[in-house]
Computed example of a mutant assay.
Amino acid sequence: MITSALAARLLMVSPERVRQLAKEGWIEKQGRDQFYLVDVVQGYIRFRNDSDRRAQKTAADSRVREARAREIELRNAVREARLIETDEAMAIVEDMIGLFRAETAGLPARVTRDLQFRKTIETAVNDILERVADIAAERGRAVEEARAAREAIAPHAAGHMGEREPDISADSGRAGAA
């Protein structure tokens, strides 16, 4: 038998904490401020294991809440037209580049009648259009690679909580069931 003061020294907590754990049922009290050493150690281990389990569950719950909040934010952004589908954005960019290309096609003729100077302007405009096309293609590949990566990950992503979990309610009457 040991006192709460000695139990506190063994567990590196205060005597008040030992008494609190006893009140909460983690440590069995044998008499006025008396405890079995084994009960103190085992009770404290059970308490710590339960605390660790609850902390892990809280962290997982927090990640789920954050993911749900992010999903809601994205849905709201789509509804408020602050966010559009990638395909739609790419189509808009392609339309704008097509318009730009069409408008610049007649630029040399609008600037000069000198055929040699027109050729110089056409070459410069075509160089610019090629650089724009190369950058657009590069960015498009990056978007497609990111999409392919998301699609590859999606089948392996965690489902909703409880999805495809066995029904444990039938086991609740058995000894040792969780």
Rank of each mutant, 00 (worst) to 15 (best):
I135M: 10
K23S: 13
E144F: 00
E103T: 04
I135K: 08
L129V: 05
E144P: 02
E28A: 15
I72H: 04
A109Q: 11
F35H: 06
Q34L: 15
E122S: 15
N76R: 08
G162R: 01
I153N: 06
D33E: 10
G140T: 10
R46I: 02
D127C: 10
I153E: 12
E151C: 04
K57M: 15
H156V: 04
A124Q: 12
E144N: 09
Y44C: 11
E130I: 14
A81N: 08
K29A: 15
R68L: 14
E94M: 08
I45K: 15
R101N: 13
V78Q: 06
D134T: 06
A137F: 00
G31P: 14
E85S: 10
L74G: 02
W26E: 15
R32V: 14
A152W: 00
T123G: 05
L83A: 06
K119N: 13
D114G: 09
I84F: 05
E138Q: 08
I27L: 07
R32Q: 14
V111D: 05
E66A: 12
A133C: 06
Q116K: 14
R68Y: 00
D50E: 13
A157Y: 00
R48F: 00
K57S: 13
A137K: 07
V40T: 02
A102F: 02
E144G: 06
E122P: 03
K119F: 01
H160I: 10
D39M: 04
A69S: 04
A91E: 11
I128H: 10
I128W: 08
F100Y: 12
E28T: 11
E71H: 02
D50F: 01
V93N: 06
R68D: 15
V111W: 01
P108Q: 05
T123I: 04
L107M: 11
F117T: 15
V125D: 11
G98W: 00
I153R: 07
W26G: 14
G98Q: 05
